[in-house]
């Protein structure tokens, strides 16, 4: 498998099939998802991401939910969320099944803040990365409005092995006309993959059907959020059941931090210029050599012997 993957990766996309360079998207239809988690298994299998095998060994611990792992992790790029709204009722549960993974934003904060260029947007519009370039600064974690990026090697205090791990959108598969691993294994057809425009069209049609069936809160998510994501959601129930922010946006502090780079550049030039001017103005400076006669409280010019200042102690001078 490893050899095959390396071979696949070597093929240059544009030479093979220029048509696949169109903007792509994954469509997740929550109304069709059965919560089988086959997509999670496919993701781990294709990307060789291990899972702990010991009983109840997930770091997050047992949450009393089908949602396990409970959150994304160093080796978990995708998890299926389960929300049991209405569980306080005697019967009838609005069991909302969601999907948590990278949303592949158009306005990707993680790409903006990545100092080494490890994170980038590929030709499909997906946010991918070159792990060899990752320096483990973890800035992407704070910049993501969906709290998605996770890092491997977090148990290493030195940070030597700290590297990003998140959904890449399987660009190696896409480049060869294949669906991302998660999509390829979805039995009920909740996951689809194709041109983004087409996925949005399908999503809108599906929402219309759902609303027609009485699911008033059904909506499409991802068309405009974060500049337009490359994972489009059909939400069967209200958004509050899907661990998704209503208005995802990159934190203002992240933007402010980015502004500091040009500020530092301009400030450094200004500082250098200012100090350079001071230096030039100070060239040739000479001052009289003074000494202090502590008996008579006189400050005396050494060369001339002249008293330049008398300290009147009785008057309170120092």
């Amino acid at each position: 498998m490893a050899t095959l993957q390396k071979e696949l990766n070597r093929v240059h996309l544009d030479e093979q099939n220029p048509a696949v360079t169109e903007e792509k998207a994954i469509l997740f239809d929550s109304s069709r998802c059965s919560g089988c988690k086959g997509c999670m298994v496919a993701c781990k299998t294709w990307n060789k991401l291990p899972s702990p095998l010991e009983l109840n060994s997930q770091k997050e611990g047992w949450q009393g939910s089908l949602q396990c792992p409970y959150d994304l992790g160093p080796n978990t790029r995708l998890t299926i969320t389960f929300n049991e709204d209405g569980a306080d009722r005697m019967w009838g549960v609005n069991w909302a099944i969601g999907r948590r993974a990278c949303m592949h934003c158009t306005d990707a904060g993680c790409v903006t803040v990545c100092p080494s260029g490890a994170l980038y947007k590929n030709e499909f519009g997906m946010v991918s990365y070159d792990r060899e370039k990752c320096i483990g600064c973890s800035y992407c974690k704070g910049a993501c409005p969906f709290d998605v990026p996770r890092h491997m090697g977090t148990d290493d205090l030195s940070g030597v092995s700290l590297r990003i791990n998140k959904c890449t959108g399987c660009p190696d598969r896409i480049a060869h006309g294949m669906d991302p691993a998660c999509v390829s294994t979805c039995q009920p057809g909740a996951l689809m993959f194709g041109n983004r425009d087409e996925m949005i069209k399908i999503a809108n049609e599906r929402v219309a059907v759902l609303q027609g069936k009485g699911f008033d809160k059904a909506r499409v998510y991802g068309i405009d959020e974060a500049g337009g994501t490359h994972v489009i959601y059909v939400l069967k129930y209200g958004i509050e059941q899907y661990e998704l922010p209503e208005n995802p946006s990159v934190s203002g502090l992240t933007a402010a931090s980015e502004i500091m780079k040009p500020v530092l550049g301009v400030g450094s030039i200004a500082l250098a210029a200012g100090l350079g001017l001071c230096f030039l103005r100070g060239v040739g400076y000479k001052r009289d050599e003074l000494r202090y006669d502590e008996v008579n409280h006189d400050v005396i010019d050494v060369e001339t012997g002249e008293v330049v200042k008398h300290i009147d102690k009785e008057a309170g001078e120092r």
Binding site: S138, A143, C144, S257
Partner: peptide, 23 residues
Amino acid sequence: TTVCPLPAGVLTVMRFLHDLFFL
């Protein structure tokens, strides 16, 4: 970001402070 994971929001604030006081 290693042995004592902090929420992303806290990390963002800390990064901002680190950059600001660097200047």
